[in-house]
Design a binder for these strands. Sequence first.
DNA 1: CCAAAAGTGTTCAGCTTACACCCATGA
DNA 2: TCATGGGTGTAAGCTGAACACTTTTGG
Lengths: 229, 229
Amino acid sequence: MADYYKDEAKHYVAVDCIIFGFDGNRLKLLLIKRNFEPGKGQWSLMGGFLKENEGLDNAAQRILEQLTGLQDIFLEQLLTYGEVDRDPAARVLSVAYYALINTSNFDEFKAKNYKGSWFELTEMPELIFDHAEMVDKARKRLRRKAKNQPIGFELLPQKFTLPQLMKLYEAIYDQKFDKRNFRKKLLSYNILKMLDEKDKKGSRKGAFLYQFDADKYEKMILNGFSFEL
Amino acid sequence: MADYYKDEAKHYVAVDCIIFGFDGNRLKLLLIKRNFEPGKGQWSLMGGFLKENEGLDNAAQRILEQLTGLQDIFLEQLLTYGEVDRDPAARVLSVAYYALINTSNFDEFKAKNYKGSWFELTEMPELIFDHAEMVDKARKRLRRKAKNQPIGFELLPQKFTLPQLMKLYEAIYDQKFDKRNFRKKLLSYNILKMLDEKDKKGSRKGAFLYQFDADKYEKMILNGFSFEL
DNA sequence: CCAAAAGTGTTCAGCTTACACCCATGA
DNA sequence: TCATGGGTGTAAGCTGAACACTTTTGG
């Protein structure tokens, strides 16, 4: 095949992942200690270069899997960063993705290979390049998204309690909610299934466990419903 | 400087622009007839390749200016399309941007160089590659954005009437609004300045002209206000 | 004088918010 | 028995939606 574009410039393209996790209390971010130049030894988002015959979404999945061992994770493209000087070593475009994982089933062993560790958003170290900007953008996206879709559930274990869910939303929005109003609202969507079990880790009384009911949610959006917090 | 990345792949990166315009009645899209292979003679978004030492946003501005002669236009990155086979001629990433222009001061002469012409969204021709997908995404973004920021004003001339503004919103959302409610709501934001002039093009009675008051809007968002339609 | 678009208020329903006490349990 | 977090209902204010008639003026 003729290369119609052969006179055009070619560019390095990286994919960087903003990985959010929730430990039951606070919203956290998975960062790695960079083990190559430039910026070796500094904190950074997990990333990698886009390969010759690899789709962007695939690259993001690959990179996420390398670090966490997880597949089939919520992953969404955020924005592409293309300032000429953003990487001091060379002109590199970076396509940012953000991911939501629940920390319970994540592979600590893999993460150790990259010196990955979790940080509270309030206690983030300094990041290389424009990564802090990416994180900020991702937080905003997460807030917006969580208003329109129940993506918060990606961050929780399969069974969770309403106090846990509320803590998650409080962490995402960095504000307190009234528990009566919160329960009323969430239950009114009819996308939660209450189970017979209680989780007693949080209190002596124990809190009922719930499951997210994806079927009901599908039906709900098919009927033109819009999830709003 | 050492090229730490020299073993990594490099890629062609294009920038494609979804250009919305409003002619006072309907929301339109500016498309060009492609004059190079592949896809020569087919309808397409205006685009171009990212140059060696050019930032992404700059590239988008350059491309927009080439076609419309306009500078300082609302322009926002949408998403990057990176499927391996999206362009049949070569592996090309495309960073999509969308722009809002008011058609009154746009340079038809320049547009003719590219065989550019306006299409109603309902009468769009078939587009090359994944451009239709980009347009669809841009429409959704425009709707969302117009709810939270008064970007609609980018699409209007500096002075406009409330009926015009309402028509614009009706075009963006593809639905009718009640004019009493619409006026009440928009005026309640206090970001419009009524002028002493009337525009008589639309009716014998004439409609008062308004101007968008950017100062008041800045103050409004500083005070934590959220613009909602 | 009439056609055509501009302009104008009120009511009702539903949603959001604020708010305080009892319950169950393990230690 | 008590400390701790879990669970529950109601009232007030606000916002969004529905709805119809009068005004202006060029032809």
